[in-house]
Design a protein around this nucleic acid. Structure first.
Lengths: 181, 181
DNA sequence: CCTTCCATGTAACCGGTTACATGATTGC
DNA sequence: GCAATCATGTAACCGGTTACATGGAAGG
């Protein structure tokens, strides 16, 4: 069977340990969000579909009188997960509006610094965020999530470096107004 | 009015010079594709919508008996383009399935090299492609499209570097089997 | 002649986001 | 008592991809 993007992250998260839909969302937001997001609007229906397909089970596990369902992988679910992990390939897609603005910046040169600034801000914020997570982790540093976190940090660092270089070349003094509003 | 992603790239490309839908697609595939794609299925309907909204005009310009429409920006279209370019912000979205696999690789450690190899291949191929474009350009190197091209090259270079480092740390000898099938 | 390229378009499908609706629990 | 958080879900909308359909022109 074909698995949607949301299905993949569900399977992966449940592969780590059983969780509720809410927990999955939390985990995604705290880790894969920057390269793989998921919304409730996809999450819950997808959990149902996976259950229907026999890849996950759900079990009521209320907290007091508060409704709660814990999902876990079935054998079929785990095997689907492993099959995906072992399969070669996988798509990488990027959609970067700021880069597009920069690409067209010669149509209105005065707007270039704006786009470049926005780009720098974006990557700097993301970088800071990931570094915070990194410093707060209690996980062994050889685990793959941490490796991926490091890749993310390196990625944003590289962009910040490049952007600053370009800003210099263009003679923009991005006078570092990094204060909160 | 609100502009879709496809509308933005249309406006930008027409901002450079009048073109047919086909020409826009060619230009996108040759330049922004890696961070901003567009398909015919969106392009043609979107051109119509923009025409309906008075942002572009279309004019028949057949090549011999072969049907062809050249589109150009109206004043309203150009002002919409400039407004977008000048506006702050813009979203950056990434969806990287290979990174997701790597993230979950501790669930099946033997699959890690596969994902890592795929990741390296992806960035190396993209890098080579962009470098080819770069070496073939006849454009002045201070133009923004070239700047963006350079950013793309730097981006993929940084990834290749990181991936090779990680492969080394994991003790994978990605024995460089870069031959075609 | 036949393939490749130029050129325009549509219909079906899909995956995802946003906004909304509901309600219990916890902690100030 | 009130706000924040836990928790589940749905409906409307949207933007995009894929596959299909059609046909003329150019070049080997």
């Amino acid at each position: 069977m074909k698995l949607s993007g949301t299905a993949l992250v569900i399977l992966g998260m449940l592969g780590r340990r059983p969780r509720s839909g809410y927990d999955i969302k939390q985990a995604v937001d705290a880790s894969t969000r920057f390269f793989w997001a998921a919304s409730y609007g996809q999450l819950y229906p997808e959990l149902r579909r996976l259950e229907g397909a026999g890849l996950v089970t759900s079990e009521a596990a209320p907290t007091g009188g508060r409704q709660r369902k814990v999902h876990r992988l079935t054998d079929a679910g785990r095997s689907a997960l492993l099959q995906w992990l072992g399969a070669p390939g996988g798509s990488i897609e990027l959609r970067d509006e700021l880069l597009l603005k920069l690409f067209f910046a010669d149509l209105a040169p005065q707007t270039a610094p704006v786009a470049l600034e926005a780009l720098r801000r974006h990557h700097e914020q993301a970088l800071r965020h990931l570094e915070t997570i990194h410093s707060e982790r209690g996980i062994p540093s050889d685990a793959f999530p941490v490796r991926v976190l490091d890749l993310g940090i390196g990625h944003h660092r590289a962009w910040v470096r490049q952007i600053e270089l370009l800003a210099e070349q263009l003679g923009i003094d991005a006078a570092d107004e990094n204060e909160e509003s």
